[in-house]
């Protein structure tokens, strides 16, 4: 059953085409990795799905809703982790407050937090192994811990769809694996549909059920072995190699992503 339907989507910023004629369907539950070079429109695609950017052409349907018309309702059903460089990390916000932000933002003013909400925040923090950090401030944490806190914030409202934008930038390998394990559990136990944008697919290749390669247009979309081939990498990045080792598939695309 498809949870996201995108048909002929085109998005332009000041006459610059960010996405052109993009069409795909996402089934639920599933884990979908979106890759592409810098400026390929990966973040724009996530924002369009949330109804946060104006579309020039095309149609999007999320859980049966049109995000351009019902953006607020759509966002209430979603969890989102932005790129961490968009977060003002210097602000000494308590970890508990950051997690509870995930509930408070979806409520009407005065956005009162109940004891049950606090309990839920503790449960999520425990699930992600960050319960002992709850009284610390966000700016005291390591990159991996910060990412887990942002994941907890996205998960506390129990979203049907979870979208992560470059979640592993500045995150150590151990934390990356720990986060990936939690994402697998979410998909398996809660049936959450996950869209993960990354510039480097190799760390998350084990996680991927589907891979979408985009460069303003959808170059390829499907199961890892179907979508990830040298032809599609070449179309997106201007070159690239696929290496199979020990039953795993690795791509070498020489792409960098600046923070």
């Amino acid at each position: 059953m498809s949870i996201i339907n995108v048909e002929n989507l085109t998005v332009t910023y000041d006459k610059i085409v960010a996405l052109e004629d993009v069409t795909f369907k996402i089934d639920t539950p599933s884990i979908n990795i979106i890759i592409g070079p810098n400026g390929a429109g990966k973040t724009t695609l996530l924002k369009a799905i949330m109804g946060l950017v104006k579309t020039t052409r095309g149609r999007i349907e999320v859980l049966g809703l049109n995000p351009m018309e019902k953006s607020f309702e759509v966002r209430k059903l979603m969890g989102y982790i932005p790129q961490r460089d968009r977060v003002m990390e210097g602000i000494p916000m308590k970890v508990t407050d950051v997690i509870l932000m995930g509930i408070a933002t979806k409520r009407e003013w005065p956005r009162i937090i109940s004891r049950e909400d606090l309990k839920e925040a503790e449960n999520i923090a425990e699930f992600l192994g960050i319960k002992d950090l709850m009284n610390k401030t966000f700016n005291q944490l390591s990159g991996g811990q910060k990412q887990k806190v942002l994941l907890a914030r996205a998960l506390i409202s129990k979203p049907k769809i979870l979208m992560l934008d470059e979640p592993f930038n500045g995150v150590d390998v151990i934390s990356q694996y720990s986060i990936m394990e939690k994402l697998k559990e979410l998909r398996k136990i809660n049936g959450t549909t996950i869209l993960l944008v990354t510039h480097d697919i190799n760390p998350v290749i084990e996680l991927a059920e589907n891979v979408m390669i985009i460069n303003r247009r959808v170059i390829a979309f499907g199961k890892v072995h179907e979508a990830l081939n040298e032809e599609s990498l070449s179309k997106a990045y201007g070159g690239g190699r696929i290496i199979f080792a020990e039953g795993k598939c690795y791509s070498i695309i020489g792409d960098t992503h600046h923070r």
Partner: peptide, 10 residues
Amino acid sequence: FDMEGAEALG
């Protein structure tokens, strides 16, 4: 703290 995240959260 997080304009983009807050907007995406609703």
